[in-house]
Design a protein around this nucleic acid. Structure first.
Lengths: 341, 341
DNA sequence: AAGCTTTGCGCAAAGCTTTGCGGAATTATA
DNA sequence: TATAATTCCGCAAAGCTTTGCGCAAAGCTT
């Protein structure tokens, strides 16, 4: 049995006063005499008193705790978003408790339920890939529990969200290829259900049109974001009678899987096929050739999400859901060097 | 103002019975009549009652919450350890609240203090790189708060720890080089203060001796685990009058920085200089040449740490600290192919 | 000196749960 | 039928904190 930490009662008994007096003294209430106040604060300091958050939580219905649900804890993308959330949460006195949905709809519901049972003050999350029904958020919305989605979102009119401008990013990539002299630009997209997939496809198509290139069905392939599936998608593209001269992968895993497959088939990058991915700095610079990629402002996504939470948590009345759109950055490296004339 | 969730009081009032009766009914206490029990449970179900963990925490002095402190949230190594912790913690009804020490001693103390104020049931952590004093753990030890260190440890006789067999791993790498025909084997080590650094150096030296190779001071260089510092360390090695033909980097960042620097200087891997790192699968397979490396059982480290916590949390009396040593795996890839005769 | 205002502190309730004990009503016993 | 034994439920305390209200003692006024 661990001994209980010092409480108001400990202090009160030690000083032979009531708990209310101790409580007031600690908060410098004018009702308490200066000498007593000093004595109390001194003892509190000495005994390292710190108010019990459980009692405070009970009183105020506030735990200063944010539930964070991500599809996956290991991926650099999510890890650094969590890092961003953690930083601003801590700066504002909040703790974060983390759960992974493992991209599963069932697990996502479980996590949500568990965190609510824990009485978190709000939820910051990214939808699981499987999730197509959104009824499990009704309870939160009804209870006006602060909720923030990032990256993968739904019900954007009801929930605060932070996303990146996927269309713009996809347009920029496509244009970048075009300007480099590439004309058969393929796109390995993600699952059709994800909003990020749709937006990037739209941007891709918009840019093709703007560049005067036709949209060829066969140059748009889907994968489920796994390595195997991305590899298969690449193979489908390369098996085309008229294969693409540029590939734009929808994310990290996809881009690297594509790169490996290209190398395996003896194709040179970018001479035979140029490549661009959505990925993060460390990976992109370590491969050969270095990978041109759209960098997500991951830490900022997390920070912004936490700020949106705080905004809701502090508001007296439930504020209108705000949408934050962050811009990405296209970092040009070797894998998309201009085509030699 | 969010409305309060349903409590025993809600149910009690709805059924015109006392809260104690509701409480007993929910736990199938024999004192309560079967019909009433049924009615109570039905209503509880319907209203989605779930006991308030704050009240329970107050009562039992238990929050079912584990504080996790890592030096860095973004690194794959820590991210996947967290993933392991999360999994077994959740399986056993615990939540984890995460903090990053940013490798800072000051921050580490802050995190520790904050988590204790939060009344976590225990702490699982990895020491910050800066941390050299360990007095801030006295309070935990005195209060018998379950504490588990992983990877970087201290006070191993007092605290449960989970580590990998660094000596063995270093020996294996060195032997692997030797068997491949390499004779001037260098080691880029980490900060001398870290136990992992020391252990790997010892293993390195043991294996050199076992292979009948001399230990040359100049082939052992230190870095602080940053990219810049690892690059500089590599440069020092390559500037040697008699440069090494094999390099063994102390971790992820180091190995890749070394690889980049080797390439930059136009050296071929492994023909001119072979390379082995401590790293994780994804990175290692994506680079060119693929990197031979010692793989940490990261998820297992996390799982094992959580199990050690549970062991302490469940023990009636404070158990003797247990040391878990996990074995690593040397995955041979292209960067250390045998030297052609 | 009698009455009024301050000053300084304690009581108790609320927030939620569990649990020992007591008590009323019902049933069984003599 | 009066008494003993069940049966079934409520009171209250404990765990910790805050806060409205009350109360005693001290200070002040005239």
């Amino acid at each position: 049995m661990r001994k209980r930490p010092v409480s108001l009662k400990t202090l009160a008994q030690a000083l032979s006063v009531s708990m209310s007096t101790v409580s007031r003294a600690l908060r410098n209430h004018p009702d308490i005499s200066p000498e007593l106040t000093r004595k109390v604060q001194l003892l509190a300091q000495e005994l390292q008193y710190s108010p019990n958050p459980l009692a405070m939580g009970l009183l105020r219905s506030q735990t200063y705790t944010i539930g964070v649900i991500v599809p996956d804890l290991v991926t650099h993308f999510f890890a650094s978003i969590i890092s961003g959330i953690e930083r601003v949460a801590n700066e504002h006195g909040y703790h974060i408790v983390i759960r992974s949905s493992y991209e599963s709809y069932q697990k996502e519901k479980e996590c949500l339920a568990d965190l609510l049972k824990l009485r978190v003050d709000g939820i910051i999350m990214c939808l699981a890939q499987e999730t197509q029904e959104y009824a499990h958020f009704d309870a939160l919305l009804d209870a006006e529990v602060p909720l923030v989605f990032f990256d993968r979102v739904c019900r954007a009119t009801e929930v605060a969200t932070v996303v990146v401008d996927n269309q713009e990013a996809a347009r920029r990539i496509t244009r970048h290829f075009f300007e480099g002299g590439y004309r058969r630009i393929a796109h390995i997209a993600g699952p059709a259900s994800l909003n990020i997939t749709q937006e990037r496809i739209e941007g891709y198509q918009q840019a093709l049109a703007a560049c005067g290139l036709p949209f060829e069905e066969s140059l748009l392939v889907h994968c489920d974001l796994s390595i195997a599936s991305a590899t298969a998608a690449t193979q489908r593209l390369l098996a085309l009678p008229n294969r693409p001269d540029a590939i734009f992968g929808v994310n990290d895993t996809t881009a690297f899987a594509a790169m490996k497959e290209l190398k395996r088939q003896g194709l040179r990058i970018p001479q035979d096929v140029a490549l661009v991915g959505f990925t993060d700095e460390f990976h992109a610079t370590v491969v050969e050739p270095t990978l041109t990629s759209v960098m997500h402002p991951t830490v900022e996504i997390g920070q912004e999400a936490a700020l949106l939470f705080l905004e809701q948590a502090r508001a007296a009345t439930h504020p209108a859901p705000r949408q934050t759109i962050l811009t990405t950055q296209l970092v040009v490296r070797d894998s998309s060097a201009p085509k030699p004339a």
